[in-house]
Amino acid sequence: MQNFEYIAPTTVQNAVAALSSQWGVTELLMGGTDTMSLLKERLATPTRVVSLRHINELKGVSKAGSGLKVGSMTTLSALASNKDVAKAYPSLVTAVEGIHSMQHRAMSTVASDLLQRPRCWYFRNGFGLLGKGPGGKSLAPAGENQYHAILGNKGPAYFVNPSSLAPALVALGAKATVTGPEGSRQVAIADLYAIPMGDNDREVTIKPNEVITDIVLPAAKGLENATYEVRQRTLFDWPLATASVALKMKGKMVEDAVVVMGHVAPKPWRSSEAENALKGKTISESVAGEAGKAAVSMATPLSKNKHKVTLASVAVKRAVMRAAGMEVA
């Protein structure tokens, strides 16, 4: 770990003021579950670390109109155990429960989950976010890409977005309030992420000196939502593919649908193909299955991750069934 200055401001204004406008110069500490490893592995070598943990206004869940406002420093366990969240947004609760580590859920916050860096093993082994080897060639396409992207993987990025909450929040139409030196703005969660195209790009659209202060969840009335995660193990592990759906129902018929997949692309991947397959339909296992197939119809698997196409399709199918109150395997 490289030495750094540590500050723990108590206001958002002071936190923003302490951040550099250049990536890599300062780092935010929001939960510590990822940043600490990055520092230890020297994948992050900031001169200053800014903790948001002492900014009390960033913690907790409150009513906001007919929806909810979730402070960005609310821990994942606090989020999932909040009664209003549990009642209206089961897809978020499932996403949190999928993290089979009580310790992790107790430390990790909404912001740290959303902004954690990719788990791509090329990135984590020091080959850069785009995982380039000798001669600047991308390693994933010809290498060990079993956990890599099957969508949005035209290059040069092949990693997958690791956030547990993001797919569910995108499906629910949530927005993040982002605060920087020029004030606050609202960003749809879907627009928080971008696929990096160059070596100096990041996987997020917010600026290095901006912080997420809260998440605004729109009303979930009439919105059947669910998450399904394909996981190999029942301990702290990353899912192989996930899907979150939000269905606006008119009686038994799907009036509108949002289908978002996680761990399949460098950003949460919304599938209009799957959504179209659901609109106007009554949910059955076969309709859900069709949506699953549609969700991956544009998939372009790499040499070792063809199975992820199947897994993502199953995740969508089962999330749709779960949202419709059907039993899944």
């Binding site: 089979h100 093993w121 984590r124 082994n125 080897g133 702290f236």
Partner: peptide, 22 residues
């Protein structure tokens, strides 16, 4: 990784052992 010869899962995140629920 065949290209670089690096061991990619020299950690307990992707070097997977069984947990109590497994």
């Amino acid at each position: 990784d065949e290209i670089t010869g690096a061991m990619l899962n020299a950690d307990m995140e992707f070097y997977k052992l069984s947990g109590i629920g497994d």
